[in-house]
Write a protein that binds this DNA or RNA. Structure first.
Length: 492
RNA sequence: CGGGAUGUAGCGUAGCCCGGUUAUCGCGCCUGGUUUGGGACCAGGAGGUCGCAAGUUCGAAUCUUGCCAUCCCGACCA
């Protein structure tokens, strides 16, 4: 992206919205704060979902589905969790409409159809799931219970943003139950690792693994682990979380099991989730002014082939040649699209697929066929090269791998350049204003200090990195002693 | 919820200050033709509750009031 755009948040927003809309990922919807995910965007989500799902299953999890509606009494059972989400809940209060006698052709809520107990549209599913687990867990033999759900949730945020914070969004939420604390903590960390691996290896987005401070912790959790990514405007984005829930939900929903000694114990819990917000992360981490840049491993279309021809006759020749290549590409497992539609000219197609971020474009005409070559263009660097048709599919596969690595390395270099140390308050404030990005600094460990820093600079502690180097120092605000640096940033 | 901006065809817009024929232009769309190696060209055509409602007026896209929606900036955001 161009440097000018980073100077103003509003311009960056415009840039981001254009990428989403023109890239064909999503549309604004008729419903406030929601969005329509278009087929291209959904295909991207499906690729991400399929990969994550595979990784969940490899780590022993199974999928299940729980209800959208959570009775209010269940919702409020775990106090902290309920309190944390109370301000952003959509609530079903009635179950019927009727004709409005005062307003012909219009409907009104039937006041006689008021629900005895309101239903909360899930902002997260801990409550309904733990209420269900109560009936599923009796013995240590029922543990661990490792379940994941793919679902939609609703959070009535004041301010929304395509993919990053929509009123309704798609996500997955894992909810596990364990016999011991150690096992639950291990699970929490394992799933954080799955997320980090997915972000880095598939989305090509480098992330920092860490633990949230008490202030930023999930409502109802003992510990919240997270992965934090850096966007191109220097703001941080929480890309995924994994929570160690202790026995909070087990106690709130009375989920106990008999251990081997026939003694009753409360189970230990975890929950973890990533959402369509990851798509927002992907967009903001890689795209440039020409449009989206999709990492090959999850790109809906990995290779697009554009034919160049004059008249039906030459089109048939090119079609014939291309079809052979497509067959080979598909054999190699490559997602390829052949756009030989006649209502757009090659130049238009080139621009269109660049907007959509298709990693590799192959252009082929009679001239190429005569010379036994094709023009191969890569989206990440915009380089074009003529490649021999002999062994082209294998070369393209290699190129896709190269692009995946290159996109990641570029994002990694940007991220690392934008982690800076601040050793005084003045330096901290200066860095925030000049450079954005992450700032590594000492903090006295109190919520009050964290809150003050947030008030004065809008920067929050994104995380305390895992395996953090222990280092004596003084808090940048209070000067109190500190044992380690933490990562600050302004965030989405 | 506070501040700012915007709302005219599928999209982007002119007109509004200073009310007056048939609401401007571009993209897109339809038909026919020529084209096709970086967002083609010619000709013809279709498409409008000017966000909604009320008011002022002989007459409202234009003035007044209210409402609604969207975007941006805040506040909020496991």
């Amino acid at each position: 992206m161009s440097k000018e755009l980073t100077t103003r948040a509003a311009d960056y927003s415009q840039w981001y919205n254009d990428l989403v809309l023109k890239g064909g990922l999503a549309d604004y919807s008729a419903v406030r704060g929601c969005m329509v995910i278009k087929p291209y965007g959904y295909a991207l989500w499906e690729n991400m979902r399929d990969q994550l799902d595979k990784m969940f299953k490899e780590t022993g999890h199974e999928n299940a589905y729980f209800p959208l509606f959570v009775p209010k009494s269940l919702f409020e059972a775990e106090e902290k969790n309920a309190e944390g989400f109370a301000k952003e809940c959509a609530i079903v209060t009635h179950y019927r409409l009727k004709n409005d006698p005062d307003n012909k052709g219009k409907l009104m809520v039937d006041p006689d159809a008021k629900l005895e107990e309101e239903l909360i549209i899930r902002p997260t599913s801990e409550a309904i799931i733990w209420n269900t687990y109560k009936g599923w867990i009796q013995s240590y033999r029922d543990l661990p219970l490792l379940i994941n759900q793919w679902a939609n949730v609703v959070r009535w945020e004041m301010r929304t943003r395509l993919f990053l914070r929509t009123a309704e969004f798609l996500w997955q939420e894992g909810h596990t139950a364990h016999a011991t604390k150690e096992e639950a903590v291990e699970e929490t960390e394992r799933m954080l690792d799955v997320y980090a691996t997915f972000a880095e290896e598939y989305m090509a987005v480098p992330v920092i693994r860490g633990v949230k401070t008490a202030n930023e912790r999930f409502a109802g959790a003992e510990d919240t682990y997270c992965i934090e990514a850096l966007m191109q405007d220097g703001k941080a984005l929480q890309a995924g979380t994994s929570h160690f829930l202790g026995q909070n939900f087990a106690k709130a929903f009375d989920v106990q099991f008999s251990n081997k000694e026939n003694k009753l114990e409360y189970v230990w819990a975890t929950s973890w989730g990533v959402s369509t917000r990851l798509i927002g992360a992907l967009i903001m981490a890689h795209s440039d002014d020409q449009g989206l840049i999709m990492p090959p491993k999850i790109a809906p279309v990995q290779v697009v082939i554009v034919p160049i021809y004059k008249g039906e006759e030459s089109k048939a020749v090119v079609d014939n040649k291309v079809n052979g290549i497509i067959k080979e590409l598909k054999t190699l497992g490559i997602r390829v699209k052949y756009d030989n539609s006649d209502h757009a000219r090659p130049g238009w197609k080139f621009a269109e697929y660049e907007l959509k971020g298709v990693p590799v474009r192959i252009a082929m005409g009679l001239r190429d066929i005569e010379n036994n070559v094709a023009e191969v263009a890569r989206r990440d660097t915009k380089e074009k090269q003529s490649m021999s048709l002999d062994g082209l599919p294998v070369a393209v596969k290699k190129l896709l791998d190269e692009i995946q690595v290159n996109i990641f390395n570029k994002a990694l270099a940007f991220r690392d350049e934008n982690i800076r140390e601040a050793n005084s308050w003045d330096e901290f404030v200066q860095l925030l204003d000049d450079k954005a990005g992450f700032i590594s600094a000492h903090w006295d460990g109190t919520g009050e200090t964290e809150e003050k820093i947030k008030e004065q600079t809008k920067a929050t502690i994104r995380c305390i990195p895992l395996n953090n180097k222990q280092e004596e120092g003084k808090c940048i605000l209070t000067g109190m002693p500190s044992k380690e640096r933490v990562l600050f940033a302004r965030a989405y």
